[in-house]
Simulated assay, not measured.
Amino acid sequence: MLAVLNRCQDALDATRRLDFLGPLLLRLYLVPVFWMAGTQKLKDIDATAAWFGNPDWGLGLPFPELLAWAAALSEAGGAILLLFGLAVRWVSIPLMVTMLVAICAVHWPYGWQVIADPAAPFANERVLAAAEKLQRARALLREHGNYQWLTGSGQFVVLNNGIEFAATYLAMLLALFFGGAGRWLSLDYWLARRWRQQRTRMDGGA
């Protein structure tokens, strides 16, 4: 029995040869997320700064122009660096900061869920109240609209705007921060490998 378990463990350990796939897929998943977020901010940076700074209908943050540029460039530039696997641990830091700001300043009052689903865990009062509103909206659409056509691209939902997505992206970035860009398919790997080889030659010649 022990021999069988050891062989199973050896087979499991052998899969670590493909450990580069994890960070690669994390990077590729996050690239369009941050590219869209950053480029949308850059398209109208004045509006972005206004939203960052306005206390009535925005976030009410200090230095809104500086923060708007920092967030936009971190996201758009970070997407490019993630794509090529360059300076991934470094760029994960400002991206994690943007996610923390998004969680605390934007999404926190709405709870966990992005889409209101009363049957899901962590449903708060706002989510529970959305169920009746959604049922009523669907009834109106069935009565006065072509409901089959309206739902042809997907079911109607209520956007709750909770922290779910931002927290997920934060966890992914945290994994990249500690684990790096991964082997073989990242510039970080090849640059570090070259530097180590040069250091070895220098130490050998000293």
Rank of each mutant, 00 (worst) to 15 (best):
M1F: 09
V4T: 06
L5M: 04
N6D: 12
R7G: 07
C8K: 01
D10S: 10
A11F: 08
L12P: 00
L12E: 00
D13Y: 02
D13V: 07
T15D: 00
R17V: 14
L18R: 03
L18V: 14
D19E: 15
G22D: 11
G22N: 09
P23E: 09
P23I: 04
L24M: 15
L24H: 01
L25Q: 09
L25D: 07
L26C: 10
L26H: 01
L28P: 15
P32L: 00
V33D: 01
F34M: 11
W35F: 15
W35H: 08
T39Q: 08
T39Y: 05
T39F: 08
A47V: 11
T48R: 06
G53M: 11
P55I: 05
D56Q: 13
D56G: 02
D56H: 10
D56N: 08
W57F: 10
L59S: 04
L59A: 07
G60W: 00
E65K: 11
L66F: 11
L67C: 02
W69A: 03
A71T: 12
E75R: 12
A79N: 10
I80Q: 09
L82T: 09
A87W: 05
V91A: 07
P94D: 10
P94V: 01
M96K: 07
L100T: 10
A102D: 10
A102K: 00
C104K: 13
A105K: 12
V106L: 11
H107N: 14
W108D: 05
P109I: 04
Y110R: 05
G111T: 06
G111N: 04
G111R: 02
G111M: 10
Q113C: 12
V114L: 13
D117T: 06
P118N: 01
P118F: 04
A123F: 06
E125Y: 06
E125M: 03
R126W: 06
V127Y: 04
L128E: 01
L128V: 14
A129T: 03
A130I: 10
Q135A: 15
R136M: 07
A137E: 13
R138I: 03
R138V: 04
A139N: 10
L140W: 14
L141M: 15
W149C: 03
L150T: 02
L150N: 07
G154I: 10
L159K: 13
L159Y: 12
I163S: 04
E164D: 11
F165Q: 08
A167W: 11
T168E: 12
T168D: 11
A171H: 04
M172H: 09
L174I: 05
L174C: 12
L176A: 05
F177V: 00
F178A: 08
A181P: 14
G182I: 07
R183F: 00
L185F: 15
L187F: 09
Y189N: 02
W190A: 06
W190P: 03
L191Y: 01
W195Q: 13
W195S: 08
Q197R: 05
Q198F: 00
Q198M: 04
Q198Y: 00
R199T: 13
T200W: 03
D203L: 12
G204Y: 01
A206G: 11
